[in-house]
């Protein structure tokens, strides 16, 4: 996982609340066997509508999603986060996130920034009147900026630290490599291994 300090990208206004993970990516896309390529399933029901925001330039190049409250509720599928990342999003801003989604996002390096709904609405107006406006998210300062707009966002300290350090769960555990080595060295010799036995 790449360290996340600050990020600047085109903001995408996604009005509407309660965008659950079935809307982010429907179950039919869960059958695949790869971890990448989920961008085609992102918001797939809406993508067939030519008026949908991601079907319009310059929003189709967007990477900072500004969403309504209760984004990412419902099914625990990790695919929702994969789909957003695969499409190119690095940040989702919302006034409230589904708990599991927020946890999954932190693990995969997608910043879920919690803002006041009034700030979200100001951002929506700005992005809609001046499409293509870039939004800068500073994780060290916990601020969101776009043109003259500036606001603070919230994120739990543990997730913030992990994102700043670029540590996914596995990366974090690998910091304990010496302790894992030591534990392994002390394991009882009779513990089984799966190595095939001589015939």
């Amino acid at each position: 996982m790449e360290p996340f300090t600050n990020y600047t990208g085109i903001g995408v206004p996604l009005r509407g609340s309660n965008v659950d993970t079935d809307q982010i990516i429907p179950a039919v896309y869960l059958k695949r066997v790869t971890r990448s390529g989920f961008e085609d399933g992102l918001f797939s029901a809406w993508r067939s509508d030519e008026h949908f925001v991601l079907n319009q330039a310059p929003f189709d190049k967007g990477s900072v999603l500004v969403a309504g409250p209760d984004f990412g509720t419902g099914s625990s599928r990790e695919h929702a986060v994969w789909a957003l990342l695969d499409y190119g999003f690095r940040v989702v801003i919302s006034a409230r996130f589904g708990d599991i989604f927020r946890g999954n996002a932190g693990k995969q390096g997608l910043l879920a920034a919690l803002c006041e709904q009034s700030d979200v609405e100001q951002l929506w107006k700005l992005l809609e009147t001046e499409p293509g406006t870039e939004v800068t998210v500073d994780l060290e300062q916990k601020t969101v900026r776009a043109k003259d707009f500036q606001a603070r966002f919230e994120i739990d300290e543990y997730t913030r630290w992990r994102l700043l350090e670029g540590l996914d769960d596995i990366g974090l555990t690998m910091r304990s490599a010496a302790e894992i080595d030591a534990f392994e060295a002390a394991r009882e010799p009779w513990k089984p291994v799966t190595t095939p036995l001589p015939a």
Binding site: K107, D169, I170, L172, M174, I180
Partner: peptide, 13 residues
């Protein structure tokens, strides 16, 4: 995700 974690590290938090 935990399957991947165990494959990579043989541990789980």
């Amino acid at each position: 995700s935990e399957v991947e974690h165990v494959l990579a590290t043989q541990t789980l938090p």
